[in-house]
Write a protein that binds this DNA or RNA. Sequence first.
DNA 1: GATGAATGAGAATTCATTCAT
DNA 2: GATGAATGAATTCTCATTCAT
Lengths: 199, 199, 199, 199
Amino acid sequence: MDEKKLLFNNKQDKRLQILAAAAKIFTAKGFHPAKVEEIATAAGVGKGTVYEYFSSKTEVFREMLSYLLEFYKQYFEERLDRSKSVREQLFTIMSTHAHFLKNNKDLFSLILEPHQPIDEETQAWLVAERREILDGLAQIIQTGIERGELKPVNTFVAAQILLGTMISFSGEVFLAKKDWDYQEIINHILEILFQGLEC
Amino acid sequence: MDEKKLLFNNKQDKRLQILAAAAKIFTAKGFHPAKVEEIATAAGVGKGTVYEYFSSKTEVFREMLSYLLEFYKQYFEERLDRSKSVREQLFTIMSTHAHFLKNNKDLFSLILEPHQPIDEETQAWLVAERREILDGLAQIIQTGIERGELKPVNTFVAAQILLGTMISFSGEVFLAKKDWDYQEIINHILEILFQGLEC
Amino acid sequence: MDEKKLLFNNKQDKRLQILAAAAKIFTAKGFHPAKVEEIATAAGVGKGTVYEYFSSKTEVFREMLSYLLEFYKQYFEERLDRSKSVREQLFTIMSTHAHFLKNNKDLFSLILEPHQPIDEETQAWLVAERREILDGLAQIIQTGIERGELKPVNTFVAAQILLGTMISFSGEVFLAKKDWDYQEIINHILEILFQGLEC
Amino acid sequence: MDEKKLLFNNKQDKRLQILAAAAKIFTAKGFHPAKVEEIATAAGVGKGTVYEYFSSKTEVFREMLSYLLEFYKQYFEERLDRSKSVREQLFTIMSTHAHFLKNNKDLFSLILEPHQPIDEETQAWLVAERREILDGLAQIIQTGIERGELKPVNTFVAAQILLGTMISFSGEVFLAKKDWDYQEIINHILEILFQGLEC
DNA sequence: GATGAATGAGAATTCATTCAT
DNA sequence: GATGAATGAATTCTCATTCAT
């Protein structure tokens, strides 16, 4: 099953065709170097058609991120079983994240990083989305503490560590090496995060 | 002691004046939205003068990053005492990183993140620099393992966790809150990383 | 009785609906700023339908002016009684003109002024129409002279004065003030034109 | 002595070169059909240079009109002798107007007519300028009445007649016929306006 | 060396017109 | 006939770069 297909496959809907093309081009080049005409061509439509569906290049960008992020978040909801142990949940999260990246190459860099400045509004929205994701992670940690699975650590700090680790690995490992065994990497990560570095 | 001064203080040297202004403007706006004229004005020189010292806007960007990165790396060399314990060294690294950020606000986002794409060459160079930093961290971990301070973990994975955590906190904590007690945050972080999450 | 109704009331005829909408929109915004889609919407038809009845935006404009002008000229023919005195005829003309304007607000500016250039052909046609109107006025003056009502003035010059006065008052007085007593104004005008300024 | 030269001859001043070219192009084609590049070429400068001196096409238009109007108004101030009889003054005004038109062909149509809509602000400004000109004419009439030269007519109505006549003749006579004896025409006009049409 | 006026390639956006349904 | 989604030519404006002073 290919998520990219799931994500943007409805050929009937030109809006989605354009968003899919936008994701590809924006991801490869960033906001400013990406040209509207290029996106239009990649979407197989005329330049003017982009403006039938979106009022500006900025709106295309914003809508594309929004769509992607919804998809990303839903992706986790479907896979996450909160009755399992925290360690198992985190394994699922990292694994799902890696899987998502494999199928939506590079797209991730557009979501969780403090970005190339487009405009204040988009920036603020991205920061808020990031915060929401952090809160979700912190909540899982908190549950683990309450269940007695984890030490009573600062949940916000722990969430930051988790997210930072995921982002750091995103570019470096998951994307760089085509056929990396990410399950093993994730086990390494969780080993360190759960048992600690110290002897 | 103000690092910004140290970093770009030679008023005689127009080249440095321009790099200092470039750091300020590029940091605030990103590569594309930053205008050469703006940088020139901020540097107190004429627009044409920028082209006396650099062949293009891209070169200004690249040189600025390079200069900044050298400074950043040297900053650590001066402060890092490899005879101390790994935990102490990591505390120094994180603390120095936070301190650097405080004094060179936002500059960091230009250094260690997979960037807004300028051009292939700059991109590749940044990836290499990032790798070098990771190697430095991995080396410290390795030393810790050899000395018996740390468990025999995968050093590359540990380095990624450390760097990811630093980056994640950079935007979120160090920069957002003006007068945050980062020493305490760093202790939280190291507590988790050394003792682990698990009970 | 509402002339606007008379002018464009045949709801069955889409062509007239479009011309009516065109008159409204072109009048309010001028040729270039008026959008075909806007006219179509105002006419209650689809954009494509406009092109079923007219070959281009320019043709819509030309046809609209032509229709309007025919209506305008016929308007006078119906009201003008050439057996009356010239002064009475001119009063009727000015009064009818004012009345027409009240009911077809702003439309007039589209007719008698040297226009925003659409194309050579339309321009030339408008000049010819204007000339025809001048000739009509000159003819009335000529009749007055022959009847001994008027001094033997240059009829072309007199016609220009009359038309210029009407145009000048069109924008200034008739349209600007909603409920102006134009009968009184016209009497002032004719007083000056017939008795002269001089003591 | 050539007024066009006086009007826009300072080759040193690129701003004026651009305004001169703008007057020529806008006059020939109207606001919308005139292209910025065309104006630039006519001014002998690059497209970008226009934007060094003006912030937008609209500003070029506005500035051009403003400059022209100042010149036009000053043109009269220099030629008008208020101690002379009103009839002589009006002869001077019409004659000067005709002369100005001869030397600044077509430019006039840009000044005193209710225009092709550019934007609200420019429109309002033009209306105000027109009003000012009308007030000046009314003032001359008023003086004539006070001096006993003229009948006690409504000065505003008389001013409208005068201005309407001038505008009407502008397009029709002064500009159309290259070598028309406008002095004779003006005498015809004043004859009618002063002695009246009636026997 | 230093400057900033001049430039024109390039980009976002608009909108008259077409044409498949 | 009627429609409006699709289109791309055309236009305004930006800005990195050049070069005469």
